[in-house]
Amino acid sequence: MERIVTTERVVTGETSVGSEVGAEKMTLEEVRDILGAEVLAGAHLLSLEVSMGCGADLMSDVLAYGKPGSLLLTGLTNQQVVRTAEMADIVAICFVRGKRPDEETVEMAKRQELPLLWTRLPMFESCGRLYRRGLIGVSESTD
């Protein structure tokens, strides 16, 4: 992984503030390899980058604490996970603990161009591996 320094311009009314944010971004391809995951949707989108990880099985918490640009790790596999990702501007979902989403959920994600990964690893192990490889959590993000 390379270290990428992004310069973000936040425009507030007439004044614009440039802030330097040092953050490890990770491509979905890297995520797939680190977690030994299978791609269920969005195989053509693996070059997309996620800037942080968010692990939760309760979608309200994702809506409350998740940030745009996140990778969502969850053991929940119903359609509301895809909806939640859509609402919260989540980049991609990785289903953990080996539970597969049903066809409809996968189809919904495909329609929305939302990449879906799937790993047999438990939540803790998945979060741990990604964190060790440099992916930060939402509380560490300055976005």
């Binding site: 099985d57 309760l58 979608m59 309200s60 918490d61 809506l63 409350a64 969850t74 929940l76 119903n78 509301q80 996970v81 939640t84």
Partner: peptide, 17 residues
């Protein structure tokens, strides 16, 4: 509802947020 990932008492809190 909880098993489906909702109903954890964050709904109104999120709206307020």
């Amino acid at each position: 509802v909880r098993e489906l990932g909702f109903g954890a008492g964050m709904g109104l809190v999120n709206m307020q947020k």
